[in-house]
Design a protein around this nucleic acid. Structure first.
Lengths: 197, 197, 197, 197
DNA sequence: TATGAATGAGGGTTCATTCAT
DNA sequence: TATGAATGAACCCTCATTCAT
């Protein structure tokens, strides 16, 4: 915290890079492309960012930081686990539909980020994952959830939500809340009706 | 249709390419890398494949074809929906843990495949997705599943399973069947115990 | 002649450029580097100098002018040739140890200076060289030196002294005068003791 | 010895690079220039060399190795010091006039070679220097030379010879042997005639 | 005077692909 | 089938220089 060697570039630069990366992929996008999206030439771009990889890192870090900030209050609230889980799923869907491009870059960008930086991102990613797992573990502990492998279940739920970046269309008929509701019902009460009640 | 068809290259070539692509990413891997993995030089590789993109397409097609072949008998069996869904999840986990590299290439490779070919892959991908959605719809129809948006739920379940390529370690403690069981319970009976029965 | 003349920039600018050029080489140093050494930004530097090459020329000219000024009175004095030569060597060593950075730039900078300017520097360099050769010729003429190719010998002596920029350390144990004495003895009386006297 | 990570490129490549570097300077020369000198394109050059710096290193190493090989038998022979010194000077002049371009690259190239490699070259350069100093020390020890700082004198003599790369013209009237003779007389018997004999 | 921004002109390097042997 | 060589097309990045503020 505080010693990041990466200057924060102008906002529009990051926004443009995020869009271009999400459309062409990190490797498929050239600095030229990003510059063009900003109405400037390649060389000018280097006044705002030090390298292409810097841009990728900035996007990654911005996203995971924002995600954690949004998740933390939900995960650590005093609400019952089921409630917290549903809120987290809703937040996740909202996040994806609001940050479409950045999420795409984030979830596809694996492997393009150099060692140290990738490690730092992974660490934060794990932090987020642990928040979800913690909610499940809490529920199992207090009996509001059935006995289940909370880590695996958490990863399953995360996958369910993350995967939306491949198909969810914010401009489509379905609202993010609709999807979140479906997912919540799916993992909370399950597909099968409660037997014999 | 109009393009010249893709000759099927020697198996070891596809295997090597799959491994190299999965490790370095499609863009990050060079033909040189693949050739080296086969103990030959770049130029020789062109006696076996016509282009780098051909390789990617071959891998994609091989995978989706194999996946559909494995899924079809399950999806179309006469077993009850809940049973079929569990079987599909189990098959999916098994598939991922057996075809680690290819699955990685398949799920990360979006965007690197040219128009026509990508479309053909997407079509088959949709076929697979529809199989899952159909099972859910069947369950909703026969009352064995609760009323739910079967398409969205199917995508959620697929995401849950697909996402495993990012974290599941075939050499770890967890068996693919264990994960499949957790996932099945999660989406069939849900996290919350059946109330007051 | 036809080109616009070079304004003399602030002294500290030249000093900084000299140091930076000597450390990184002319091509290796950027205007940014020089500006940084002055605590300003690249663009500000252009208020003081018109171009990078101007800086190089200014350094070259300042050095050769200063060197000629120091050498002239010695070379044209009435002292006997041996004395003048020794004095010149001493002056040369003193000059190198006092103007380390500038000498480095001067002796390494060949080829970076454009046609006309380089020619002008070379001309002055030759003037200096001729001073030394003249001393030798004088000695040969008045019999105080042996018959020898005075031009070649002069170049040898200059090389001996100039070369010091590659190894002489002003902060080392050896004083410039010590080196000058060794060099003077070497070229005046030689390594071999006078035979049978 | 043996573990050099630099493949030896085709001879003509090294020759061309040497000439181009000597004419334009390392930084002033582009890979394009070198390729053009070989009648190929920039990209083709990379089949023969891994990087521009590799080329520079190969030139440096080739030169210093060759120089040491030529100097060693002279320096370690049983001939009297004066004879060995004269022979070394003659060899040096011959070397410079035969390897004009490479010597130019070698003596100007300081600073362009990365840390490790530069260190390795400097080490060998010192080896060569020590050979000369050793001859002088031998002469001082056996009384055939006057008492003198042999290290400084050696550097002076080396400078005298090395400096020739800046002015000696192999196609001029002066033969390398002529210059060598002048230099030998200069440092062996000196400029001043033997007094009163 | 000082500077942030912009940019044309390269420069080194990589790479998929072709071709003659 | 195998490969050494060659190359066009890019790509990332640097830099001297200009200009509006």
């Amino acid at each position: 915290m505080g010693e990041s060697p990466v200057r924060a570039p102008r906002d529009d630069v990051v926004v443009a890079a995020t869009r271009v990366f999400s459309e062409l992929g990190y490797h498929g996008a050239s600095m030229e492309d990003i510059a063009a999206a900003l109405g400037m030439r390649k060389a000018s771009l280097y006044h705002h960012v030090r390298s292409k990889e810097d841009l990728l890192y900035i996007i990654h870090e911005g996203l995971i930081e924002q995600l954690i900030s949004a998740a933390a209050p939900i995960a650590t609230s005093d609400d019952p686990p089921a409630y917290r889980l549903a809120a987290l799923i809703r937040m996740g869907m909202h996040f994806i539909s609001t940050n479409r491009a950045a999420v795409t870059v984030f979830l596809q960008g694996a492997g393009s980020l150099g060692g140290d930086r990738w490690d730092r991102i992974v660490e934060k990613r794990n932090t987020y994952e642990r928040m979800v797992a913690r909610i499940l573990a809490d529920g199992v502990a207090d009996g509001s959830f059935v006995q289940i492998d909370s880590v695996t279940a958490a990863r399953g739920i995360l996958g369910m939500v993350n995967w939306c970046y491949t198909w969810f269309d914010p401009d489509g008929e379905l609202q993010p809340e609709d999807v979140a509701d479906t997912f919540s019902r799916l993992v909370l009460t399950g597909l099968t009706p409660e037997a014999g009640c």
